[in-house]
């Protein structure tokens, strides 16, 4: 059964009289230049990661509100969830998202990301999925190729194994294949 499609109408509201910007639910947002976020990445990675996580959680929360809560998201189809989640990230200006399924592994592919900081993007996606589904989901970057960055989404321990495998120079296909066999390295 097809769920409600993503409707971006009213996602951002600008109150020009009061000089405020807010999301569809009335929470205020701030339009921050990308350079400002990139400057944080040099020495304050944790702060940048926190910004990303917060941004992602806000997106996930909106998806969940549209899909009937975290239970509704879990029961929703893969396409519905991807559509709402990608829509929310696009409105926030964080790039284009789609999901790949590699066997039993869930992989988020993000393109046109405003910031190439891996920690920021990992925190953004982890916050969105966790907020939308009500589960602790950790995303680990597997590298960028062709302007697209792949992120493994799963348990925190598995995410650490993926990072280790990436550090060893393995390619995403190798890492995901090894994950299917019960090991990441």
């Amino acid at each position: 059964m097809a769920g409600p499609s993503f409707d971006p109408s009213g996602a951002v509201r600008f109150d020009l009289r009061n000089g405020a910007a807010s999301d569809a639910k009335g929470k205020r947002v701030v339009l921050i230049p990308v350079e400002a976020l990139s400057a944080l990445g040099d020495g304050q990675r944790l702060a940048l990661a926190m910004i990303g996580q917060a941004t992602g959680q806000a997106c996930g929360a909106r998806v969940a509100s549209r899909l009937g809560g975290d239970a509704g998201v879990r029961k929703a189809s893969l396409e519905d969830v991807v559509s709402h989640l990608a829509g929310e990230l696009a409105v926030a200006g964080l790039g284009m998202l789609h999901i790949e399924r590699w066997g039993r592994a869930l992989v988020c592919v993000l393109a046109q990301a405003p910031i190439a900081d891996e920690a920021f993007l990992e925190a953004t996606l982890s916050g969105a999925l966790s907020s939308a589904t009500g589960r602790e989901v950790m995303c680990a970057c597997m590298g960028a190729e062709g302007g697209q960055t792949k992120f493994f989404c799963g348990a925190a321990a598995t995410a650490d194994r993926v990072r280790t495998a990436v550090g060893e120079g393995k390619r995403p296909a190798e890492i995901l294949a090894s994950l299917q066999e019960g090991g990441a390295s």
Binding site: L78, A105, T133
Partner: peptide
Amino acid sequence: FSPSNFGDLLDASLGL
């Protein structure tokens, strides 16, 4: 593996 919904895929990925 053909998950029927997003929850099944998420659970499978979390189970890796």
